[in-house]
Amino acid sequence: MDRNRRPGSPVNVEMLREIMQLNFAMIETVLFLNTHPTCRPVLDLHNEFASRFNKLVERYQERYGPIYASYENAEYPWMWIEEPWPWEIKY
């Protein structure tokens, strides 16, 4: 295997932290909605967080590499294997 092929993917920690914040906002609203399924204001909040999350992830994946292993327009060469992984990043 050609080890020189792998430069490691660039990371934008600031943008990553924003993605993490929106991801957390989704986690929290999902948990709340599970026991309050008719709470319209929190449902609206969840939808807004999810929409912002998806847009930001799409932008991140275009510029810096995968958040998900599979997504449309994955680049050549296969980028999912690129370091750093989440535990290797200084936030």
Binding site: L16, R17, I19, M20, N23, F24, I27, P66, I67, Y68, A69, W80, W85, P86, W87, K90, Y91
Partner: peptide, 13 residues
């Protein structure tokens, strides 16, 4: 389950 290549919250030392 599907993995996201992020942590849920930053972990630094």
């Amino acid at each position: 389950w599907e993995y996201k290549k992020i942590l849920e919250y930053p972990a630094n030392v």
